[in-house]
Design a binder for these strands. Sequence first.
DNA 1: AGACAATAATTGCATACGCAGATACTTGCA
DNA 2: TGCAAGTATCTGCGTATGCAATTATTGTCT
Lengths: 153, 153
Amino acid sequence: MSRTPDPALLGLAQGWCALSALHGRIEAHIERALQAAHGLSVREFSVLDVLSRQHNGEGGHLRMNEVAEAVVLSQSATTRLVNRLEDRGLLTRYLCLTDRRGIYTDVTEAGLALLGEARPTNDTALREALREASKREELAPLVAAVESLAPVS
Amino acid sequence: MSRTPDPALLGLAQGWCALSALHGRIEAHIERALQAAHGLSVREFSVLDVLSRQHNGEGGHLRMNEVAEAVVLSQSATTRLVNRLEDRGLLTRYLCLTDRRGIYTDVTEAGLALLGEARPTNDTALREALREASKREELAPLVAAVESLAPVS
DNA sequence: AGACAATAATTGCATACGCAGATACTTGCA
DNA sequence: TGCAAGTATCTGCGTATGCAATTATTGTCT
């Protein structure tokens, strides 16, 4: 009845399961920390972080759809997320001059300040979540993989 | 102005970012496939999968809160998720006889059948998503880590 | 037994999400 | 110029989520 069709495939499924579980645990933990301390959701923090990085080098600013892809969110959700941050004065919108379909965003001083405050909270919560997850047998190897991702360079 | 306080910490943040992005991409891809082919969400599939495994050995059935932890979901969301599956006739609820606070669930024949149909869809979509993600430089190492998670054993 | 804390599950509420359709702008081609 | 196709963003709608409060059951202590 219940056969094991493909061992390699079973491994893949387990890997995905572990990835999903680890992601869920970390996200929940950081979400609570950021929300309690700064009234920011994980995604809001993530967007501010991405936008602040792109602005740093004064290279090319990101269009809405590029932001959406960077944080893996639908375009509609990105629109509303940016709306929220704009309403709170954390960033500003402005149209692209050469193509008025495109919309750019700048993180304001207030946004950068909040981001700066929130970053330690985020990092601490991340470390805690990883430490907690590494206690679970099925998650430990993935935790190790994440920790060894960008070691030096 | 913008200093780099702790390189190790930066690595952690990048690792978490990659983990998050990879998870989001895989989930979105599988979600579309499962939804289109079987009207199942990723989480619904996940719950059916977990429950069917636990029932196999006829070991101990899972309580609601154990299910919630297994799929990393709040208890309220789990209640409603199980409600949906029960309404569709994919599983049944029954009270634990020795502790009437606890509630157990059995996957029905229909549930097992649907799960069996959906599993190949899930696996195929997972492979596609991983293959796609491995093309992205920042995700490739994590993809490799996931793929090498449960190789043999 | 009776009171009180602890545990399991559910429900009310506000919010964020994705999909599909609508709107605004640009580009290409006649 | 004028019109069709393509691209970027936003809006309407239904649904899933988490938190906090609620209900039901069990265990403990006197």
